[in-house]
Design a protein around this nucleic acid. Structure first.
Lengths: 134, 134
DNA sequence: TACAAATTTGTATTCATTATAATTTATATT
DNA sequence: AATATAAATTATAATGAATACAAATTTGTA
């Protein structure tokens, strides 16, 4: 489904700025923060305002087109991959990678008394690349 | 083990301020942020400085006496419960509760190529109390 | 083409957090 | 006990992420 259709489907006007912001988040595998999105897109949108990026990621998040992840270093990072998955966060290089994982039987233990609609799993450690460069 | 011993064991001078900050985080089940710690302890430590609270939680975190959890609303919250567990975060009331969970077989799927030293699991949803007050 | 609505821009403001310097407290030494 | 030194705490300034706000611009419709 094209970005324009995705935005229209949730009632968000698909302006070029919004499409580019969403496409960047969707295509990068780096879970960017607002500053990274801003710096990257400013190359092709020279008049882009940082406030627009803040407003747009908030809009996309509110309409469940992206998800926000709060990092231990106070950064807020964004992910357009809505499939159920976990993240691996390397303490050395800061890289965040998606980890496919089945959360069904994890959720079982808490679903009996609470209503769960999302499970966030983050593995902290050292990635294989940083381990070999010690 | 008493707080004073815990602090000494990791090479941290067990001043009364530090003991009280640690004890508060340890005893409360609310995973407080810096502002909550500060406001609460100011009642018994009238000259307490917010900078001291920031410095002390950073010290305790660095010495692995407490853990920090970044919340979706940008808050950084602290937990002195070092046992392996997950959290349940209620989207309605904001309450964070500990959830006992076995993460061993969750870690299996990613341990083969990365070095994992911590797994953070957060369940998002609506707690039973907020469900009944709809 | 005119107009209204929406989007974007740019600046000011807020607030969490850190940096810094001064003061106070604790410890070591004489 | 007094003094020197180190560490802790305090208070203020500074930083930077994020939000608020008003103005300008763009888009869509009549």
């Amino acid at each position: 489904m094209q970005t324009m259709q995705k935005l229209k489907a949730v009632g968000v006007k698909p302006s070029i700025t919004r499409i580019m912001i969403y496409d960047y988040i969707f295509s990068t595998k780096d879970h960017p923060n607002v500053d990274e999105i801003f710096i990257t897109l400013k190359e092709t949108l020279p008049t882009l305002s940082k406030t627009t990026v803040y407003n747009t990621v908030h809009l996309l998040k509110t309409h469940r087109l992206i998800k926000a992840y709060a990092m231990p270093n106070h950064e807020m990072r964004y992910d357009a991959n809505l499939d159920v998955h976990a993240h691996f966060l390397c303490a050395s290089c800061g890289q965040i990678t998606d980890v496919l994982i089945d959360v069904c039987d994890i959720v079982q233990t808490v679903i009996s008394e609470n209503c769960i609609d999302e499970t966030v799993i983050t593995f902290h450690g050292t990635c294989s690349k940083c381990q070999t460069s010690v």
